[in-house]
Each structure stands twice: as C-alpha cells, then as structure tokens.
C-alpha cells in the first residue's frame, strides 16, 4: 500500500499525458478526417489519388509500425520531431484515415432531395454543405466517432514504445525500478478502465439514440 502511495504521482502524471495525447491527437484526427473526407467528395482530380493512397496505406498497415517508422525513419531524412509530437502526428494520421471514411459515408447517406433543395434555393455548394448537409450528417457520424475515441484512448498506449511517458511507459519504468509487476500493471489496467468508462457510457447512449435519424430539439417557442 505504501508503494502505491509512492508511485501514484508518477501514475497520475502518466494518466494525464495519456488523456492529453488522446485529446490532442483526437482533435487533429477529426480535422484530418473532415478535410480528407470532404476533399474526396469534391473529386478534385489531382487530390483524389494521393488521398486514396494515404487512406489505404494508413488503414492497411499496423499502427505500431507507423509509429516506429515516423520515430526512426523521419530523423534519418532530417525531420526531427519530439516524441510527443511524433506520437500525436501518427495517431492523428492513422485515425484521420478512418474518420475520413466515416465522414464521407455519412455525407453520402444524406438524402438526395436535400441536395436538390439546396440547388433549388440557389445555394452555392460550400453553403449547402456548411448549413444543410454536414449538420445532418454529424448525428450519423457520432456513434462511429464514439467508438474511435475509445480505440484512440487504447492506441495511445502504443506510443509508450517510443519513450513517451504516458501511462503505459510510466508503468513499465516503475516496474523496472521497484519490481512488483502485479501491483503496478494492475493499477495501470484499472486506470485505463476508469478513463475508458465515461466513453463506454457515452457510446451506449449514442447507440441508443442512433439510427442516424435527426431528432428535433425541444422547440423553445
């Protein structure tokens, strides 16, 4: 029990880094995913092939290999990034590839008549997407986003292998220093679980409300 008290500051700092990694790379992944998903829908010719390659490469190779590749190979070609930045970058690109497909298919699922109506109201495409199509597509995307958020939280453990002192790496270091693998690894396991449970609950709620149907807000007037 004394040991637990002694190591808890390190574990908490690790947990904080894990949360930070999840938030930063999650936000970036959303930005990447929306940008790529929308760009693919726009069918710009010079972009479509590079983007398709990006998506296929990141979806068909192991995320751990991607992390190592960026960590070991980028410096060889003169790009030196901090480990934390590298970790965020790879996670954002990896999850961004998946999210772009979610964005794309959600937008494609919106009824053709909605597009027709925006044309009949003489809206330019950008306005149509911003005000009409995307607001309806977001509820369709949310359940998938929730699942990816949980997967991302778990995936941050991989960057422990490139020396980022998040939760898993902190634990591995503590085990090296103090021994007691049972106590330390179980603590970490439980901390991950505690971090994940809000997301699990959120996902359950999203699934209940899903089906992609737009539910009206309660009218205010």
């Amino acid at each position: 029990m004394n040991l637990l008290l002694e190591i808890s500051p390190v574990l908490l700092r690790g947990a904080y880094t894990t949360v930070l990694l999840t938030l930063v790379s999650g936000t970036c992944a959303l930005l990447v995913g929306f940008a790529v998903g929308l760009a693919r829908l726009a069918r710009t010719r010079w972009l479509s092939i590079p983007l398709a390659i990006y998506i296929e490469v990141f979806r068909n190779t192991s995320s751990l290999v991607q992390i190592f590749y960026f960590f070991f190979v980028l410096p060889l070609i003169g790009i030196r990034l901090e480990a934390f930045t590298t970790g965020c970058l790879v996670l954002a690109l990896n999850f961004g590839a998946y999210i772009s497909e979610v964005v794309r298919s959600a937008i494609l699922s919106i009824d053709r008549g909605q597009h027709d109506a925006t044309i009949a109201l003489n809206m330019p495409t950008s306005l149509s997407y911003r005000r009409i199509i995307i607001p309806q597509a977001i509820p369709v995307m949310l359940p998938a986003f929730g699942n990816y958020a949980l997967e991302l939280l778990k995936a941050t453990s991989l960057v422990s292998l490139i020396t980022i002192t998040e939760l898993t790496f902190s634990g591995a270091q503590l085990v090296q220093y103090y021994g007691h693998p049972t106590l330390i690894y179980m603590s970490i396991f439980v901390i991950y679980l505690l971090l994940a449970l809000p997301l699990v609950a959120l996902n359950k709620a999203l699934e209940r409300h899903s089906g992609g149907q737009w539910k009206p807000k309660v009218p205010t007037t």
Binding site: D116, A117, Q136
Partner: peptide
Amino acid sequence: RAIRGKIGMVFQQFNLFPH
C-alpha cells in the same frame, strides 16, 4: 447563379431541412 436564382422549385418529397 444569378440566372438560376430566377427559378424556384417545390418537390414531391418536400425536402424540408429536418434540422
């Protein structure tokens, strides 16, 4: 769009914006 703006349309399926 200046030309298209002279035309309006009502659809069979209404196509109101549900949100």
